[in-house]
Amino acid sequence: MARAIRWPLVVRRIHKWLALFVGVQVVLWTITGFYMVVIHIDTIHGDHLVKTAPTATIATAGLVPPATVAAAVEGATEVQLQQRLGRPIWRVQSPAGLVAFDAVTGRRLAALTGPEVERVARRLYAGDAPVVAATRLTEPVQEMGKRKPTYWQVEFEGWNRPTLYIAPVTGELLAKRHLAWRVFDFAWMLHIMDYEARTDVNNPLLRVATWSAFAMALSGAGLLIWSFPRRKQKKAVR
């Protein structure tokens, strides 16, 4: 005689193994989600690290025409007027990369040197801590995401390791990083379960964990229903 399947026992075992498999990740989702909600996003972005720059007005009288500098760069796709260390420059984008020209003389500018980058960083930084190191990076670093080098990494003294990333040609601020951002980045990696690029929010590992957590919740709900006592129907007395 075949034994009847004891469904509550089967569901309990499924629930137990699912909890063992995905329980740690559920805890990580909770902790990392709490951090990402509690810390204000402006703080994460490091807006407090840099000064609020006033809108710069650059007089165009006497400047080299943009068509002139564009003609000097093969395949130029974009020309913009901006400032570098207080001087107007033409920023020329092309398939080969970024080039800068002195907007007054038309002279092609070399990349910023280490001391010049430090001057740029000090003008941008809102604090008064000294520069610890200024490093020209040619290999990508995790905290710059998909942005390709070359760029300057300028670190300031401080417990939260405030760091500014500066474009080597134009002196533009590329990114602001500090401890709260780095913790957020690590928490985001754990949250989305993308342990390499930290950008794929639909990776297979996350899908498996999500559906496992859903199945765990569903089986737990079933066990909860079965846990309530059922009234036994009395047989009618003839």
Rank of each mutant, 00 (worst) to 15 (best):
L190P: 10
M193G: 01
R182H: 06
T170L: 11
A167P: 02
V183C: 13
W188I: 01
A167Q: 10
W181G: 00
G171Q: 07
R198S: 01
D185I: 01
L174D: 02
L174A: 03
L179I: 08
F184M: 05
A197F: 03
E196G: 01
R182C: 02
A187D: 13
I192G: 12
A187T: 08
M193F: 02
A197C: 07
F186D: 05
H191N: 13
H178P: 14
R198Q: 02
H178I: 09
E196P: 01
I192A: 07
A197G: 10
H178V: 06
H191C: 00
R198H: 03
A167W: 09
E196F: 01
G171P: 03
I166A: 15
L190S: 15
A180R: 12
V183P: 11
T170Y: 15
A187E: 14
E196M: 04
A175E: 13
A175N: 12
H191D: 07
I192H: 13
A197N: 13
M193C: 08
A175F: 07
Y195Q: 13
G171H: 04
D194Y: 02
L190G: 09
R177S: 09
E196A: 08
H178T: 03
V183A: 05
Y195F: 15
R182E: 03
A197M: 12
L179V: 11
H191P: 04
M193I: 01
A180G: 11
W181E: 10
L179P: 01
I166C: 07
E196H: 04
P168V: 07
A167D: 15
Y195S: 13
F186T: 08
L179H: 05
W188M: 03
Y195A: 13
W181F: 13
L190V: 10
E172W: 08
A187V: 01
H191L: 00
Y195P: 14
D185H: 06
Y195I: 13
F184E: 04
